[in-house]
Simulated scan of single mutants.
Amino acid sequence: MKIEGKTYLVSGGSSGLGAATVEDLLAQKAYVSILDRSPPSEALLSSSNVKYFQVDILEVSQIQDAVDKTAQWVKETGAPIGGVVNCAGVGVAGKIIDAHNEPHSLDLWEFAIGVNLTGSFNLTRLALKEMVKNQPEEGDGERGVILFVASAAAFEGQPGQTAYSASKGGLVSMTLPMARDLSRHGIRVVTIAPGVFDSSMTANFSQKTRKSLETEGIIYPRRFGQPFEFARTVRWILETPYVNGETIRLSGAGRLPGKL
């Protein structure tokens, strides 16, 4: 897909991997609609190619409002919605039975599933109503791309990651059937499963935890992934029509150890 002159909805686009993706899309002369609870940096807000909508991804009405307003913006710019990048997510931790023999919090489970899985599903299904109206591009007749962000924890979750792993595993599991559903519309579906990246989630890791992951969990290069590397992967996916129905691991050949 040609990125320039298209509009992309990026949830969680105000910081971390989402913000890096927004910056890269803007560099490719795209328009970006940011959906996030917190506003992005002034540098991003100052761009005429950016719209920010304050959205709690758990609230369907807020997602719908942002999609509707993005569709209105598209009418003004003439830049059709080319894709959705679902970067909004939360990291949660809780043993299924804790040290006091208390069961896992149901509220914590529902929060993880609600944000990471249901939130991504809702933004995608609502944006698709607009995307299927696009004129197909020349060649393969492509109309757009849906991109989910899973995690290495979808495959080898660590102790305390039952809810988090389930939410990310759900994204992996729905990638292929959704790609098959949307093939008749010329819309691709791809998931990225990052390993350990420098982000707000990992910023509070202790030095011991960080060293353990770098020396035991990551093969090469032995460091945390950088947001720009994620953003470049998004760009490659958007620009490569044959990438469809796949989950792509971005991990430095790393695997999360069973125990830190």
Rank of each mutant, 00 (worst) to 15 (best):
M131N: 11
E102V: 07
R223W: 01
T247I: 04
E76A: 14
R249F: 07
Q72T: 14
V85K: 02
K168R: 10
L9E: 04
S165Q: 07
Q158N: 11
E42T: 05
D107V: 11
G18N: 13
V234W: 01
R222C: 07
S11E: 04
A88F: 01
V84N: 00
L147D: 01
F53Y: 15
P40M: 11
R249E: 08
I187E: 00
A231Q: 00
R232A: 08
F197D: 05
A27P: 14
L171K: 00
N204L: 05
A27L: 14
F155A: 04
G12E: 01
V67N: 00
T77H: 12
Q64E: 05
A193D: 01
V115D: 03
G169T: 11
I218M: 09
K2V: 08
I57T: 01
V60G: 06
L108C: 14
G160Q: 14
E102R: 08
G5M: 01
G139K: 05
V85Y: 04
S251E: 14
E246P: 14
G83P: 11
G12A: 12
D198A: 11
T77K: 09
S165Y: 02
A19F: 07
I3Q: 15
K95E: 15
S173K: 05
A99M: 04
G16T: 03
M201F: 06
L250P: 12
I146T: 07
S206T: 11
Q226P: 10
P257T: 10
R222I: 02
E214I: 09
H100S: 08
T233Q: 10
T162M: 10
Q28S: 15
R180W: 00
E23L: 15
T215V: 11
Y31S: 11
T209P: 13
E142R: 09
E156C: 13
